[in-house]
Each structure stands twice: as C-alpha cells, then as structure tokens.
Nucleic acid binder design. Structure first.
Lengths: 134, 134
DNA sequence: GTCTATGCAAAGAGTTTGCAGATGT
DNA sequence: ACATCTGCAAACTCTTTGCATAGAC
C-alpha cells in the first residue's frame, strides 16, 4: 500500500460519511462536498471513497439497482433496502449474532470465511404508511 | 406484468443457469449461449436475465467488484466471494437458519422484512492451496 | 393477424484513468 | 524537492433502449 498524504477533500468526505445516516451514492457525496469545495471533481470523490473503503474506514454496499452506496459506520451491522423507494437503512443486530453467522458459515465452507454482509429487502415504514394513502 | 411468450433463447438461458454451478455474469451467459445461437445479442441476454430474475427463476447477485452475477438455483442459499480470485461459490446453510434471520431482523426493523441475501467474503480452497506454493 | 421477442446499434449510467498543475511533508 | 492529490476530460465497462424484423400464439 502506498503512502497516504493528508488532503482536505478526503477529510471532508470521511467526516461527512461518519455523520450522515443516509447511505449516499458517490454522486450524493459529490454534491454534498461540493458545497464546501465548489471545485471538487467527481473523480476525486470516487478515488477517495475507494481509498476509504480499502483502508476500512468506509463500507461499499452493492445493491442490484443503481450504483454502489457508501457507509462510514464500520461497526458490524446490516442494511435494509426498501423495495419501494430504494432507501438503505441501518439494521442493528446483536453483535454476537454476526459472529455466530461467520462461524456457522465457516463450518460449511471448504475454505476460510473472513466476513459477511447481509442485505435485507423489505418495505420501510414511510412506504408502508404511503400505501394506505393511495 | 405482461404476457410472456415462449422463446428458445430464454429457454436456453434458463437451462444453462439451472445446470451450471458457476455464477456467471451476463457476458459469460452471452458467450455460452452464443455457441447454440451464434446471432444472439447481448441485449437479449440482459432482457431475459432480468425477466428470469423478476419472475423468480433466477437470482441477481451484486458484488462490489465487477458486474452482477446470476444464479439459476433459487432455493434459499448463500454465496461466498473469494477475496483472492473473485470466484462465487454456493454455501448451503440450514434452511431454518435463513428463516430465523428474517424473523430476527423483522423484530429489529420499523417496517417489514421480506427476504435477505448474504454475501460472505473469504478465501476459497483453491486459493488457500496456491498460497503455499508461492 | 396481433402481440411479443429478437438483433442490432446507439445511448445511458456509473466508474476509472491519464495528465498537467496544485498541495502536503 | 519529492511524492501524492486534485480537477478536468476522455475513456471504459456494464446495462438499457428504440426500432425494424422475425417468431409465437
């Protein structure tokens, strides 16, 4: 791994990721950071998001629809994708459960399990309420 | 949902997906089906893969690196992505476990959980052996 | 005959990359 | 001073779409 140098843009991205509860796409991060750094380019955002993900300071979430999303909260937790509006929410599960699943999987796999990510699909509360208004 | 008409191309894709243990990308499916239908186009492959996924006859797997992969085995099971070679393998877990996880998640989420997919990351057996040769 | 599926090619979305100049150490 | 990072734009990958024709019912 190469030597990293401080950059204000990267610091701002990391800061933003660690304070938002949304799970922004690269483009959303770009639009947000642009308020502070009007000249920042999308390429820089992508480069830094990938750097942060590689360093373990962010998580990249791949969903079947649309681009990847990023999460600055790296404690073990799960995500729910709303089938109706596409929003990604956090789902805190028993930390022990997460470790259990890794062990369980390791027993069934001819190799080594390092980690896992689980994506739940469902309907978020907002969309459930809307359903009754239509 | 619209009316579906039979097509040999779609049948061939479904057949291929249900017999392979790889988890091919759309392009891999395309190359394979091309042997039987030399004129098939990539667009047709994508259209049919999405149809199959919508009908529940295939599963679309999104990984952070590269394009989506497809799996014709729709019984509940998990996947392992090798961190070294990128290969996707099946992981059969206790079916009850899978239902348990949905229920557990539903209790922790303000909305409704419908399903989930879990992607394990690890090192497959082939790559583990290679490690000792290098 | 009508409606859907196909092949083709072009367009679209998301992401990466090469380069010259700015910035951090 | 040197290596890294940035902004810009072009390139690239993956996927979708519009249209005329072929195929299913």
């Amino acid at each position: 791994m190469a030597n990293l140098k401080y950059s204000r843009q990267r610091a701002a991205i990391k800061e933003y990721l660690s304070h938002t509860l949304e799970h922004p796409t690269a483009d959303t991060v770009y639009l947000h950071i642009k308020e502070e750094f009007p000249n920042i380019s999308l390429g820089t955002v992508y480069r830094n998001l990938n750097l942060l993900a590689d360093m373990g300071d962010a998580i990249k979430i791949s969903t079947p629809d649309g681009g990847d999303r990023f999460d600055g909260h790296v404690n073990p937790h799960y995500h729910v994708v709303c089938r109706s509006c596409g929003k990604v929410s956090d789902l805190e599960l028993d930390e022990q459960h997460i470790q259990e699943v890794n062990k369980l999987a390791d027993r069934c796999f001819e190799g080594t399990i390092l980690s896992h990510t689980t994506l739940f699909y469902g309907i978020c509360r907002e969309c459930e309420s809307k359903k009754w208004k239509n």
